[in-house]
Computed example of a mutant assay.
Amino acid sequence: MDRMIYTAMTGAKNILEQQATTAHNLANVSSNGFRAQIDAFRAVPVLSEGLPTRAFVVDSEVGSDFTPGPLHETGRELDVAIPGAGWLAVARGNGSEAYTRNGSLRINENGMLQTESGLNVLGDGGPISVPPNTTVSIAKDGTVSAIASNNTPPAVIGRLKLVNPPQDSLLRGADGLFQTRNGQAAESDARVTVVSGAVEGSNVNVIEAMVNMISLARQFEAQMKLLQNAENNANKAGQLLSLT
């Protein structure tokens, strides 16, 4: 009976965590470049002085679905999307390098090329600075050119740092950006290309997420019924012991 309590209690707890993950995915259906989170669970025996007859459920690791999202044409020159595998390198506030698929870029008041959340976009030589009174053009290979208004030839001001580290070496941070597990900067990959005038949408499947949410709710109810059964069994066992 106590084994049932351990299993049902920890199962219900982790189902609630999985529901939170699914709700987080649904909340980011419209977030550009978002990668859906995936929960993985495993059973762990409870080690004690007695035999390991009890087990509980633990969340082994929160993974990510790296399936590419759909590309949406915007016609905006500062929007870039990465078809297939690859990442856009950005600099966090603490100076560390992170990676994103959200290519909706902007130029701040200081002329720095940034993401829409205000992070500097990294080039092969560091952050990219755009000269004043110019427009920006981004080529397929990530080359960033500045075009002046006086019809002078475009001037290359940098190249986007495009990387493609192995998926199992990436770890999602609390800010939603990805980084390498060892904290080292990934090498640029010339095979990664971009599409200008488009952004990548979220890869969250709304229908699948809603069905999963309903399934999790039913699983939680089943765990609660197991706990109720355990309580009823304990009460009946107490009654029998009191009669003897």
Rank of each mutant, 00 (worst) to 15 (best):
L113Y: 00
L160G: 00
P153G: 09
W87T: 00
S215N: 15
A55M: 10
S96E: 14
T10P: 01
D39E: 11
A217T: 10
G142R: 05
G118Y: 04
D141L: 11
L226G: 10
S117W: 04
T53Y: 05
L226M: 15
S242T: 10
G126M: 04
L240P: 01
A20K: 11
L160V: 04
E231W: 12
V46G: 10
L16E: 15
L71V: 14
E73Y: 11
A27C: 08
G183Q: 11
G75W: 09
L71I: 15
V211H: 07
R35N: 10
A174I: 13
P131S: 04
N108K: 06
F34P: 03
A20R: 10
D189Q: 07
G11M: 07
N32Q: 14
E109L: 10
I207L: 14
A36R: 00
P127H: 00
F41T: 05
A190N: 11
Q19C: 02
A209E: 15
M224Q: 15
R218K: 08
E61N: 10
P52I: 02
E221V: 13
K140H: 09
L71K: 06
Q239K: 09
S215I: 06
G95E: 02
V80T: 08
N203V: 03
L47A: 13
L51E: 11
A185R: 04
G197F: 10
R172I: 04
R76L: 12
T100I: 06
G173F: 03
A198G: 01
G173T: 03
R106H: 09
V163F: 02
T134C: 11
G125Y: 00
N235H: 10
P45V: 05
N14F: 07
R101I: 09
A40L: 13
L119A: 06
N233Q: 10
E73A: 13
N164Q: 14
L113N: 00
T67A: 11
A185E: 02
A43Y: 07
Q114A: 10
L216S: 01
L241C: 05
I5L: 14
K13H: 08
G201Q: 05
G33E: 09
S60Q: 13
T143W: 09
S104K: 07
D124S: 05
K161V: 00
L78T: 09
E208T: 14
V144G: 00
K236R: 14
N233I: 13
N233G: 08
P70G: 10
L216K: 03
A55T: 06
D168W: 07
L71T: 11
V192G: 00
S104Y: 04
E49M: 13
G197I: 03
Q114V: 13
G197S: 08
I207T: 14
V206W: 03
Q219S: 15
V80H: 07
V204M: 06
L162V: 01
T100E: 06
G86C: 05
